[in-house]
């Protein structure tokens, strides 16, 4: 997808966030020397195209007590993977949910990041997913992160797996 130059300028101006003022889009418009209507129209178009997922606040999971997370992985019957993956992704405690290819020694095709207040809670939520998947799941595991080895400002994404 090619992004029009005007959209690129709006993106560059807002990747760090919007100003906390009553009329944030007018302020962005002022930075760029364009009209408020143009900013709103372009952002609405980008939202329609999926370039913008939403305009919202991001709460800090850690500050709100969600300090434990685990990457749960599941070997799901391919015929049911899309249907079951959609149900797992819709769970309120799953922040990322993808189908990925299996690999040698890696039978898992569904990845779901689980967040909880502690590891026991994450394990309980993992059991909840196992129940939902039922016999369509042949094997599963969960990987906890023990160390962040690198984290750069990938500010355009929501921070993937």
């Amino acid at each position: 997808m090619t992004i029009p130059d005007l959209d690129r300028r709006i993106i560059a101006a807002t990747t760090g966030g919007l100003p906390l003022t009553p009329a944030p889009f007018a302020e962005v418009a002022g930075w760029l020397g364009i009209s408020e209507d143009t900013v709103i129209d372009r952002m609405a178009a980008m939202q329609g195209a999926g370039v913008i997922r939403r305009v919202a606040i991001a709460p800090n999971h850690y500050a709100l007590g969600l300090t434990a997370n685990g990457m749960s992985v599941w070997d799901i019957d391919d015929a049911r993977a899309i249907d079951l993956g959609a149900q797992v992704g819709a769970l309120s405690f799953v922040s990322h949910c993808y189908l990925r290819p299996r690999a040698d020694g890696w039978p898992y095709n569904l990845f779901a990041m689980i967040h909880g207040h502690n590891r026991d809670e994450v394990e309980a939520l993992r059991t909840q997913i196992a129940t939902l998947l039922g016999p369509s799941c042949r094997a599963s595991d969960i990987l906890y992160s023990t160390r962040i080895l690198k984290k750069t400002g990938l500010r355009l994404t929501e921070g993937g797996l």
């Binding site: 997808m1 090619t2 992004i3 993106i11 807002t14 990747t15 760090g16 966030g17 919007l18 906390l20 952002m43 980008m46 939202q47 195209a49 999926g50 370039v51 913008i52 997922r53 939403r54 305009v55 919202a56 606040i57 991001a58 709460p59 800090n60 500050a63 709100l64 990925r100 990845f111 990938l154 355009l156 994404t157 929501e158 993937g160 797996l161």
Partner: peptide
């Protein structure tokens, strides 16, 4: 309590390539 306020961009939709 809040890390950010603003648009959440989908980097892939903007043309980047990502891989775990």
């Amino acid at each position: 309590a809040i890390t950010r306020f603003g648009p959440f961009y989908d980097a892939e939709a903007m043309g980047g390539a990502f891989c775990l």
